[in-house]
Amino acid sequence: IRLYEREDYRGQMIEFTEDCSCLQDRFRFNEIHSLNVLEGSWVLYELSNYRGRQYLLMPGDYRRYQDWGATNARVGSLRRV
C-alpha cells in the first residue's frame, strides 16, 4: 500500500508491506489524503494501535480520503488482512 500526504497522489509518499501500529512513528504525517492498494486488502484505523474507525480497502486507487468512506484524513495505524 502506498500512502500520500496530499490528494491525487501528491506530496510525500510512503509504502508499507507490513502492519504498522503507529503511522506517525514511520511517517511524519497522521493525515493521508490519497493512497494506492497495490495488492491484497488492508484495514486503515483512525487511531494508533488499531483503534477507532476502520476502513477496509481492496486493491485500487483512492484519490481522496472520501473515496474510502472516511469523513477526515486522519490515519493512525494500518493492518494487512
Rank of each mutant, 00 (worst) to 15 (best):
I1F: 01
L3H: 00
Y4L: 01
Y4S: 02
E5A: 06
R6L: 10
D8A: 06
D8E: 10
Y9F: 14
Y9K: 10
Y9Q: 13
Y9P: 01
R10I: 13
R10Y: 05
R10T: 08
R10P: 00
R10M: 08
G11M: 02
Q12E: 05
Q12F: 03
Q12M: 13
Q12V: 14
Q12N: 14
Q12H: 11
E15T: 08
E15S: 05
F16H: 12
T17D: 09
T17C: 10
T17W: 06
E18M: 09
E18F: 06
D19E: 11
D19A: 04
C20E: 14
S21F: 10
S21P: 02
S21A: 08
C22Y: 09
Q24T: 06
D25N: 03
R26E: 12
R26K: 10
F27T: 05
R28Q: 14
R28A: 09
R28C: 07
R28H: 02
R28N: 01
F29C: 11
N30G: 12
N30V: 15
I32Q: 02
H33E: 13
H33P: 13
S34P: 00
L35Q: 09
L35A: 11
L35E: 00
N36P: 00
N36V: 05
V37E: 00
V37F: 15
L38E: 06
L38G: 10
L38W: 15
G40A: 09
G40I: 05
G40D: 10
S41H: 09
S41M: 02
W42P: 00
W42D: 00
W42H: 02
V43A: 06
V43E: 15
L44E: 00
Y45N: 01
Y45V: 00
Y45G: 01
Y45T: 06
Y45E: 00
E46F: 03
E46M: 05
E46G: 02
L47E: 04
S48K: 09
S48G: 07
S48A: 05
N49A: 05
N49E: 12
N49G: 06
Y50I: 01
R51Y: 05
G52H: 01
G52P: 01
G52I: 00
R53G: 10
R53A: 13
Q54P: 07
Q54M: 02
Q54S: 10
Y55E: 15
Y55I: 15
L57F: 03
L57C: 08
M58A: 11
M58D: 11
M58R: 08
P59N: 08
P59R: 05
P59H: 07
G60S: 13
G60E: 15
Y62T: 02
Y62V: 12
Y62G: 02
Y62L: 15
R63D: 14
R63G: 13
R64K: 02
Y65W: 10
D67H: 08
W68D: 13
G69A: 11
G69Y: 11
A70W: 11
A70V: 12
A73E: 09
A73C: 10
R74H: 06
V75G: 08
V75D: 00
V75T: 03
V75W: 04
G76V: 03
S77Q: 00
S77Y: 00
S77A: 03
S77T: 00
L78R: 00
L78C: 15
L78K: 00
R79Y: 04
R79S: 13
V81I: 07
